[in-house]
Design a protein around this nucleic acid. Structure first.
Ligand code: ZN
Ligand code: ZN
Ligand code: ZN
Ligand code: ZN
Lengths: 130, 130
DNA sequence: ATTTAAATTGTTATAATATAACACCATGTA
DNA sequence: TACATGGTGTTATATTATAACAATTTAAAT
């Protein structure tokens, strides 16, 4: 389904960090964490992040300026993403619902336009915080 | 349906500017525009923006860090918003579709959780750019 | 093998976006 | 009056992100 990309050194270091983080990571927190591995400048982080987003290995949570690893193989190509965000503990989960993605992919606006790319962020309280 | 708020001077100046702008405005572009009216500091702008977002008079386009006036009376309370964004000309339109908002308000995640707040951004090409 | 193009890296500097902290003022209300 | 709430003005600072340039690596294309 989705093309494999061989990650470069910086990309791999940063992906591994995000992938094993239990919560979304912000760019400068990533920078701080990888400085011991020789990545010293913001640009090195942002370049890796851009590439990882582009190839679908991570997603950016726009409302939080944070990044999480993708665990949903079906969204790697489409850039059609949905998340739930807890407004108390900031727990963020990627939603992979076939019916949701089908509904959104087929949604037509008032001009009859359909969209293959979208980003949806739901806000509420997670199980633990309710 | 939605409560009226009396805007303060700064809020009114900034709302009027955004409301009559044909495109979303960014905070520092707003700041530049209102300096002749005595609003000199970023914080004055951000405070007005925060309040205007809170009461639903404007929305923030998260992926663009920009603000547009709301022209959809039904979303002022709910903070349940949807936009279409043209990836070429950056034209942004608020979508007010009863079926979409109904679908999203009734969507249940895998834990059976429903969300009253959400933000959806569709990306594609507008009529003119196709 | 040699050349070429594309992608990635390293680096310094700077731009763009957003908030902290504090003093003061206006308005409503107990 | 006294008090609470919210808005304002101001300076300083934090956070997020990109520009510009040179060097290096990688992967074809000849
Ligand atoms: Zn994903
Ligand atoms: Zn929570
Ligand atoms: Zn609206
Ligand atoms: Zn367009």
């Amino acid at each position: 389904m989705h093309k494999e990309h061989t990650l470069t050194k910086n990309q791999q270091i940063i992906f591994d960090l995000i992938d094993k983080s239990p919560e979304p990571m912000k760019a400068y927190s990533i920078l701080f964490s990888v400085q011991k591995k020789g990545i010293k400048a913001p640009l090195q982080v942002y370049r890796a992040l851009d590439k990882l987003v582009e190839i679908g290995k991570i997603h950016k949570i726009e409302s939080r300026n944070a990044f999480i690893a993708c665990h949903n193989s079906s969204c790697q190509v489409s850039k059609a993403t949905a998340f739930s965000i807890c407004e108390i503990c900031e727990k963020i989960t990627e939603i992979s619902s076939a019916s949701l993605s089908k509904y959104l992919a087929n949604f037509k606006d008032k001009d009859g336009m359909k969209y293959s790319k979208y980003n949806l962020e739901f806000f509420g309280l997670c199980k633990k915080c309710r």
